[in-house]
């Protein structure tokens, strides 16, 4: 299987004191559906941010789709986020002033797509996540689960290789959590998008291809 994410000797320290990551090494294959497990404070968010080019490691290397990420090149990092990565966060993910449809379109605005193409693509993805009828609703008019589905559609709109999700089900009840999880799994199967999902719920880890577990900044399994 082709490797799409490779972390090599990643270290991250905040203010030269807090060690968030300690010599992290792993590889994820194309199309894999992986859970990143670990207690709160174990460095999961830090790792995800580095993989998505939002944050830079103190040392070590990241390879996305065979290419080394140059953390000093801001333009390249922006291009990486626009073209290769889709982000989903825990909650309050969406822009409150925009409707579901507009939220999904939003990343394409920075990708210089034509308005008509943006609209069509956003509508398609809203349909994929089962929210075609909520296109013109604002985030505050939707349930937490619906909001996360919009966030998934938004993460997918740029047709990324990888979706990085930081506790996407953290604030949801267990039924909704399962729905969201199933939705991501379905997208992963249908589109072969690679998923790396942060969760601290071990039980969810069982429903993935594979788990990576962090403990105090190091990979333990």
């Amino acid at each position: 299987m082709e490797t799409i994410i490779e972390a090599m000797h990643l270290n991250k320290a905040y203010n030269d004191q807090v060690t968030a990551l300690l010599d992290v090494n792993f590889a994820i294959g194309k199309g894999e559906f992986v859970a990143l497990l670990g207690r709160s404070g174990s460095g999961k968010s830090t790792l995800l941010n580095i993989l998505g080019g939002l944050d830079a490691p103190t040392s070590g290397e990241v390879r996305i789709d065979g290419r080394n990420v140059d953390f000093g090149d801001r333009k390249a990092l922006i291009a990486l986020r626009r073209e290769a990565i889709g982000f989903i966060f825990q909650s309050f993910n969406l822009i409150p002033a925009l409707t579901a449809q507009e939220n999904v379109e939003y990343p394409l605005l920075f990708n210089y797509h034509e308005k008509a193409a943006r609209r069509e693509r956003a509508a398609d993805l809203l349909a994929t996540v089962g929210l075609a009828d909520r296109a013109h609703h604002y985030p505050r008019e939707m349930s937490g689960g619906e909001q996360q589905r919009v966030a998934i559609a938004r993460a997918l709109v740029g047709d990324p290789l990888i979706v990085l999700a930081d506790e996407p089900t953290g604030n949801l009840d267990s039924r909704t959590r399962d729905e969201i999880f199933d939705l991501m799994r379905r997208v992963n199967r249908e589109r072969e998008t690679t998923f790396l999902i942060v969760t601290h719920e071990r039980e969810l880890g069982k429903r993935t291809d594979r788990t990576i577990e962090l403990l105090d900044g190091s990979v333990v399994s």
């Binding site: 333009k75 986020r81 966060f89 993910n93 938004r154 740029g158």
Partner: peptide
């Protein structure tokens, strides 16, 4: 603040 952070995470450059 958070909204702007998310906007950048999904691809907006500082210029945007």
């Amino acid at each position: 603040t958070r909204e702007i952070g998310i906007t950048m995470a999904i691809g907006a450059s500082p210029a945007d």
